[in-house]
């Protein structure tokens, strides 16, 4: 964990260290491609055609691949994001009216470093500083829905087109949902103590004065923290993917949730809401289901439902939002996700 002591202090040393780490990463990613064929087929002597071998290969290969991708993506994004902070975001949103504010908030929700575990202090901090409720909600919806790890994984697994669709539709849902909630008078359903809270003390922008070595340190720490938190989800997700990959026939899903089924997206969203995982854990499964012929719109809707609407976050937000507003929040976001699913199934077909 204590990378900082080992990071060279000279700029040249830092560049060399980063280049070394980068080459090691590329090497490992490249080796992973044929390593498991060799281990399973040549060393262990398993039949390459057998379903068990295929599923096993899928599991091992994907675990290493996704883990490597996550290490790279989380590190790069954390270092980039260390130049942004939630304090700066709030300052930019202060005094903005609804409409423009919703658009800006949704965009900033994508790039601001933020964990939904801090949803409550962020909500109070925004509202007490005068940011309208609807604008604040646009931020809180965009932040988990357009997840930076999901962007990185989608980009590497599915290409830029699907990624652009994901980002654009997530931002659009956040803008519209926040605006609608603001219009229907959401402030009625905010716990009164939020408005009585006075923000004391000076605002300290924690990320403004960091050195580059400290930003690298933050990146390395974040990789460890996130991987430690999500590895069970990741293994379950890849395990499910391996089972589907090996044993479920291709026409099983297409006949139940394929493009021909009018209720496919609804079923996917209804299944996704109670599931609590994260973008990294869900992606191997999404990839397998896509290979099995499920349409991309349905899969994006499923993924968004899993990451954007989660029970733990709802329970946290209950501290500041009345049940009516929580219900409206889940409803508006859910309808948005379903609409995106159908829209892209139609567009990409």
């Amino acid at each position: 964990m204590r990378v900082l002591e080992r990071i060279p202090t000279s700029t040249r040393g830092q560049v060399l260290a980063l280049a070394g780490a980068g080459s090691a990463w590329v090497g490992a990613y490249w080796v992973n491609g044929w390593l498991w064929d060799w281990v399973l087929h040549d060393v262990a002597g398993l039949d390459p055609q057998a379903r068990l071998t295929e599923a096993l290969r899928f599991f091992l290969y994907d675990t290493v691949k996704i883990a490597l991708l996550l290490v790279g993506i989380i590190f790069v994004i954390t270092v980039l994001r260390s130049y942004m902070s939630i304090e700066r975001t709030r300052a930019m949103l202060g005094g903005k009216r609804e409409g423009v504010g919703n658009v800006l908030a949704a965009g900033l929700g994508v790039i601001t470093p933020f964990c939904s575990c801090s949803a409550v202090p962020a909500f109070i901090g925004f509202v007490a500083a005068g940011v309208p409720i609807g604008v604040t909600l646009s931020f809180l919806i965009a932040s988990p829905m357009v997840n930076e790890i999901a962007i990185g994984l989608l980009l590497t697994l599915f290409g830029w087109k699907v990624t652009a669709i994901y980002v654009a539709s997530g931002v659009l849902i956040a803008i519209v949902a926040g605006w609608v909630l603001g219009r229907i008078g959401a402030q009625r359903w905010v716990e009164p103590f939020v408005f009585q809270t006075t923000l004391g003390g000076e605002v300290i922008d924690s990320t403004a004065a960091l050195t580059f070595a400290e930003r690298i340190q933050m990146g390395a720490e974040e990789v460890v923290t996130i991987l430690r938190k999500i590895w069970p989800y990741l293994l379950v997700g890849i395990g499910l993917g391996a089972v589907v990959h090996g044993w479920v026939p291709t026409d099983f899903f297409t006949s139940y949730a394929g493009a021909g089924n009018a209720f496919g997206v609804l079923v996917a969203v209804a299944m996704g809401i109670p599931l609590y995982s994260n973008a990294a854990g869900i992606m191997p499964l999404v990839q397998t289901l896509y290979d099995k012929g499920l349409p991309m719109g349905t899969l994006l809707a499923f993924m968004m439902a899993v990451v954007a609407l989660s029970l733990p976050e709802m329970i946290l937000l209950r501290r500041v939002l009345r049940p009516q507003l929580l219900g409206a929040y889940a409803g508006v976001v859910g309808v948005g996700i379903v609409a995106v699913g159908y829209l892209f199934n139609a567009l990409l077909a």
Binding site: I86, P121, L199, G200, G201
Partner: peptide
């Protein structure tokens, strides 16, 4: 929460030494 917000932080957890915020949003 109202007591936490008196320190004007938006990311938890935070560490305050003698009324000065020294850490926020990380461990």
């Amino acid at each position: 929460y109202p007591a936490i917000m008196r320190y004007n932080i938006m990311r938890t957890p935070a560490l305050v030494i003698d009324e000065k915020v020294v850490v926020k949003g990380r461990v």
